[in-house]
Design a binder for these strands. Structure first.
Lengths: 189, 189
DNA sequence: GTCTATAGGTGGATAGAC
DNA sequence: GTCTATCCACCTATAGAC
């Protein structure tokens, strides 16, 4: 994820800051110090912090969707795909980060509307993809669940986001892995 | 929850603010405006914001433990107790709040050490209580699970915290209820 | 595109009168 | 206990030179 473009480098640094400290937990000064430029320069690329935040979620969402598309291209059974979905979260967590949108969900009440909408769009897309995998798995006898695929998808996202948050607080990734494995095991046919 | 004591009233207001906006999302000015006093007065009761935060979690933890003791006094089966445990979360959510400690878990990286410790203590106590209920339920054939009670307790807490956060962002408490019901249904013997 | 300089506001916190 | 007044650091953001 090495960027040459300054805008992308700013987003890289901001992304790491939001995922660790939250949108209200960092400032332009933090980015400027890391990047080695002045605060004023940042405003050339992102006029306001709200702009920066919105563009950040947009990029994160696209990158996440690309990862989901990559899972689909890789083929494999529905349980396999779910394991690779969980692996994305683990990778983020092992970098001591939270899911960007999980973090923003906590700060929801303080976010400007465009950021809220972009955040919900992220979860909607995740729900869509997961629902597809779940339905496919159920149809092929690879997965079993009693509720609507949509509701199972929502419950799964919630479990992963919550487990991620607690695991990060305890500095113990195995807390996440245990919760995630249990969630997947319960879907086994 | 009506307090006459000024310190308690300050904590009441701060609690609502943290549960909706986060610890980094409010200021002494917000409390002062709501309470109708000056910022300086607040510093008489809580010298620093870190003090305020720590005392806030202490009180919240005690109140939560009292609620768990109340569930125990009420008797009933393990599934019954778990339903009443979930009901605590629902009540908080219907007031458009997050769990105080779930909120702080997101901001973990920016919190002073005393607040971190107090927050983890809250989750440890929840884990202890839940583990007890789970073990009791398993021993009496009311609940069934494959993993250690401790790990099931952790997974359950993570699910509830995550579902709460997403449900609040979507302004849809039913999202939480569906996830919680699914989590409890999977423990049914 | 990046800089210096600065505006205008808000943050937490303190001193000292009442 | 609460007030007024104030401090200083930091915040987001802008103007204008280079």
């Amino acid at each position: 994820m090495i960027s040459v473009d300054t805008s992308q480098r700013i987003l890289d640094i901001a992304e790491q800051l939001v995922q660790t400290r939250g949108f209200n937990g960092f400032s332009y000064a933090d980015i400027a110090a890391t990047l080695g430029v002045t605060k004023a320069s940042l405003h050339y690329h992102f006029p306001s912090k709200a702009d920066l935040g919105q563009r950040l979620i947009e990029r994160y969402g696209k990158s996440f969707l690309a990862a989901l598309a990559s899972i689909d291209r890789g083929g494999g059974s529905a349980p396999d795909r779910l394991r690779r979905y969980v692996a994305i979260y683990i990778e983020v967590l092992c970098d001591d980060r939270m899911c960007l949108c999980g973090m923003l969900a906590a700060e929801f009440a303080t976010l400007p509307s465009p950021m809220r909408d972009e955040m919900m769009h992220f979860f909607d897309e995740n729900e869509r993809w997961l629902s597809g995998v779940l339905e496919h798995g159920a149809a092929h006898g690879e997965l079993r669940f009693a509720e609507r695929a949509r509701d199972v998808a929502r419950a799964l996202m919630a479990s992963l986001e919550g487990a991620m948050m607690l695991a990060r607080s305890y500095g113990d990734a195995s807390r996440f892995e245990l919760a995630a494995n249990r969630a997947l095991a319960q879907l086994a046919a």
